[in-house]
Nucleic acid binder design. Structure first.
Lengths: 225, 225
DNA sequence: GAACGAAATTAGACGAGACTAAGTTTATAG
DNA sequence: CTATAAACTTAGTCTCGTCTAATTTCGTTC
């Protein structure tokens, strides 16, 4: 059996690995977990002993084939919980992350399967991230352009927004931006500000470029049905 | 903040205190928690330091006025979860205890309040135990006779069954015994066997006297409406 | 190719919560 | 009133996951 903390490390490694496609560095993991580097090193040794990660000293870690499904299981729990909290328990978009982060380690697979069933086996969570199936298949590994990749004048549909920053989520929510929202990019400044026009018709919404780069968005070109 | 383990101790003390109305002994608590006695003593010191229990060395512990509401909060979480798992997630009667025992420490009060709302603020859990309100009032402190307190020929309604023993619950469930079931006591043997006749009309159900004493049941006399 | 700085690891300690072994206290029997 | 058994506490150790301080390795720059 794995502790909740070990599970958290595996989840973090999965995310970071997904982002960069390289071995995950000790320092990156330490920052992401909010601990000091030696704590990471010692945990990596324990996980490596159980054959959940491959640890190349001084070079970083990556999940093994044993570790990946465990990470995916936790991610499935997390995203199903987020969906359930918003859809069935009237949670606000910005509130779900912390609750799901705690509960993901403590619900059984039976619990996860039951809420998946009630939700009709949803494909994505409220932030647009794909939910692994019960067999731990995960779609749309990582594809896609971000808001920052488009030009002024482009019309795009928001696909995914990051789920960690509650303040950002509240801001986006207040301005009507969710996965599925269609927006037009009306301005990109040299000092890193991206301005959007909502389809709905409110006043434009400005975002720092760093934020724009964390939001996935797909072109609304006519050929893609 | 309290650890999940500290919460478990407080809950256990509450239950045991409720049963006997005396200070709870170290040995009783050790057995209930599945640990050795010294572990209990050292935990009692920590809880006493935080003024959650009053510990009289060699004599036992009792919850303080600070400790009681914390125990009640956890019991509220537990019983609401049991109700929710059976009513909304199709859990079997016998399956809910373990899941609730883990989750009770990790759900927020917000989560508890939301599921309470969805359930219509139920008064009792699936085993008939009262659920504390959001204000932590708990009804029906402990009253009531058990199956073993009645005579042959008496007709009674089952009120509460213990929730810890999954095998017993499965057995009772298979024989149609739930809170609310009306039964007649048809035999009490000298060697400790109690036999019941179900209102429904199936064949009689036999229980050891020890079990009968753990099941609350109220007389179906005509005067109590 | 040597030296330096950043990153990682090793070494050693600590708090939580458990354990075993050893010593106290309490209660009960004679 | 004393002896003794049971219950309880104290003392000391262990594992887990963290920390700080000290050391080693890597990669790059001159």
């Amino acid at each position: 059996m794995l502790s909740a903390i070990m599970e958290d490390y595996l989840k973090a490694i999965y995310y970071l690995q997904d982002e960069t496609d390289e071995r995950v560095r000790t320092s990156t993991l330490a920052e992401h977990m909010g601990v000091e580097q030696p704590s990471v090193t010692s945990m990596m040794k324990k996980l490596a002993e159980r054959d959940l990660v491959h640890h190349e000293p001084y070079k970083g870690v990556e999940l093994t084939d044993t570790g990946i499904p465990i990470a995916l299981e936790i991610i499935r729990h997390h995203r199903l919980l987020e969906r359930y909290l918003t859809d069935h328990l009237e949670y606000d978009w910005a509130e779900v992350h912390d609750e799901a982060d705690r509960l993901e380690h403590h619900i059984s697979n039976q619990f996860a399967d039951r809420i998946a069933e009630q939700l009709g086996d949803p494909a994505v969570d409220p932030h647009g991230d794909p939910i692994p199936t019960a067999e731990l298949d995960i779609s749309a590994p990582k594809c896609g352009e971000t808001l920052a990749d488009h030009q002024v004048g482009d019309s795009v549909r928001i696909e995914r927004v990051p789920d960690e920053d509650a303040d950002l989520l509240r801001y986006l929510s207040e301005h009507g931006i969710h996965p599925g929202t269609e927006v037009e990019i009306v301005e990109v400044t040299s000092f890193g500000m991206v301005t959007l026009d909502l389809d709905g018709g409110d006043e434009p919404v400005a975002l720092p470029e760093k934020v724009a780069r964390s939001i996935s968005a797909q072109s609304l070109s006519e050929d893609t049905s």
